[in-house]
Design a protein around this nucleic acid. Structure first.
Length: 272
DNA sequence: AAGGTTACCTGCCCGC
DNA sequence: TGCGGGCAGGTAACCT
């Protein structure tokens, strides 16, 4: 479920709670996540120095030259609980930390995944090495996007969701940013002008920033690290609103499926 | 070889 | 009330 703003929110929520804590033990439910869990022995007794985000990955930097990489999949959640707290339903991993707290990982659908690697080789990790630019940096601009899209025959929506081009734009914010930019989700990526791409870049940055400020979206099971839900869902303009009137022109919002994913758009405000 | 489809899992919501 | 089908925010491995 989480998109970039949600992961950012989780990282920010976890940092003050677990930074500086030592990992004393790691327990798991015995069930695999998307991939088998890594062997945690190399990080038990290490201390969590810092937590970062790259794309939708949480990156735990440890003090022993090891890094713990974690993706939340669709339904992953971290909670910081007392050491002896009873395991919630769908808790699959628990890192027992110093000072009697535990970092607990719940994941209903078990689409999440984790790995451990040498910090020196972090950027060479297969999950990270092919990732495109971060959307909230200056590296993500219309000029580079235009170059990346000029050979792409597929739709603009599929391309802004392609992690090799730009990371962190998931299904919700793809629809929302295309609406704001007035671009039809099915428009061929290579057909868009520099001006249109400039507008799109601007709105992707804007919608992601707004969501981070709002503390991440809430749909079904997103919970921030402190257990409180985010609330950006209240400001979706098209996502999940098929059949309802466009907030700008009152035309009914339409839903189509692209590459197996639902897209929402206003047929009047967004042109191919 | 780009582009489309499917798989991974569980839960929920809807219609019958 | 129960059951089956469809759907869900992500990613990658398959096919073609």
């Amino acid at each position: 479920m989480p998109e970039l703003p949600e992961v950012e929110t989780v990282v920010n929520g976890l940092k003050p709670q677990v930074m500086g804590h030592r990992i004393l033990d790691v327990r798991n439910s015995g069930k695999n996540l998307r991939y088998p869990l890594p062997d945690f022995t190399s990080i038990t007794h290490a201390t969590i120095n810092d937590i970062h985000r790259r794309a939708k990955y949480l990156i735990f930097s440890l003090d022993n030259q090891q890094t713990l990489l974690w993706h939340l999949g669709m339904t992953g959640q971290f909670h910081v609980l007392e050491n002896d707290a009873e395991a919630a339903k769908h808790e699959h991993v628990r890192l027992d930390l110093s000072e009697n707290i535990s970092l607990c990982y719940r994941d209903t659908r078990r689409f999440g995944y984790a790995d451990i690697c040498d910090t020196n080789n972090l950027l060479a990790h297969p999950w990270l090495k092919k990732l495109g630019v971060e959307p909230l940096t200056d590296e993500f601009d219309a000029k580079q996007l235009k170059i990346n899209l000029q050979t792409r025959n597929t739709s603009i929506k599929q391309n802004i969701m392609d992690n090799a081009i730009v990371v962190g734009v998931g299904n919700i914010y793809a629809s929302e940013s295309l609406f704001r930019a007035g671009i039809h989700p099915a428009a061929p990526a290579k057909s868009l002008s520099s001006k249109q791409l400039g507008l799109l870049v601007l709105h992707i940055k804007e919608v992601l920033k707004e969501a981070i400020i709002a503390g991440g979206s809430t749909i079904s099971d997103f919970v921030k690290a402190d257990g409180k839900p985010g609330y950006f869902a209240h400001s979706f303009k098209v996502y999940g609103r098929d059949g309802e009137p466009c907030l700008v022109c009152k035309s009914p919002i339409q839903r189509i499926v692209q590459a197996g994913r639902a897209s929402f758009f206003c047929p009047n405000c967004q042109k191919v």
